[in-house]
Amino acid sequence: MMGAEFVQLSLTPILIGVLASIACALPGNFLILRRQALIGDAISHVVLPGIVAAFLVTGTVAAMPMMIGAAVAALVAVVLIEAIRRLGRIEPGAAMGVTFTSLFAGGVLLLEQSDTSAVHLDVEHALMGNLESLIWLDATGWSSLTDAAALAGLPPELPRIALVAALISLLTWLFWRPLKLTSFDEGFARSLGMPVSIIGLALVSTAAIAAVAAFDAVGSIIVIAMFICPPAAARLMTNSLGAQVGWSLVFATVSAVLGYVLAGYGPIWLGFSASVSAAGMIATVTGLILAVACIAGPMRARVGQGATG
């Protein structure tokens, strides 16, 4: 299982899955603390109208215009949510629900109206991604990792998501202190003179970048799952933010690897021939990890509530 075939068929999808999970889980930690967990859900819904609009404008399915389209749509959605919340004096959850469902409906309509039958662009693909198809055909074995010619044949999603994951890790490290302060005590952060609303907007934009890059590679289910489940499970493990981020990365990595392996090899072990959706399985595994943390996480209870309460 760990031979040449593994390198060719499974190594790159697993790496892409892990990197996408990490890119989403990192901002997810802060979104959870700020009670903005569902912004990830909203963003991953509006990615669809974004890429459809990009396709209609440019007429190609190249990665770059699609990602720009998705990022613009995410930004538009965030601005719309805020505008509806303020102008209509509506609670944030409902404002979010109005915005992302309308934009998503618009996206589906555009998709049906435009002639996208020739290209690989449909709702199911957007939801499930195509992790299984991101294989490394040029690889012949582990030695290919040092072979420049073979490395050039890596799926382009891998360097892209690696770059985004690195960028987000760097941003999290650089802005650790302001992020921590504004997430835990916004009033105190403001009294220190921190630009609280700019930090909030920057966090949401970073989440949008992570969502768009991950979406490109793995589809939107994993994006939503990774924004919420690993950080939520990590939150039940510890009271320290540093440790929480650490746990969330461990959970994200474990679910990506375990989910992919279960999806790819699980049915074969059980005697079936076909494999199941890797994206779906990875999301399921994150949910299971969270379920275990809810039952047994050492810090699962609220302050003042007994651990068994």
Partner: peptide, 22 residues
């Protein structure tokens, strides 16, 4: 648990949906 309701919503949404896709 001490998780807020929106996190619970997101977690249930994504993991149930993932299972459904499987």
């Amino acid at each position: 648990t001490r998780l807020p309701e929106d996190a619970a919503i997101g977690a249930v949404l994504s993991s149930f949906f993932g299972l459904g896709i499987v």
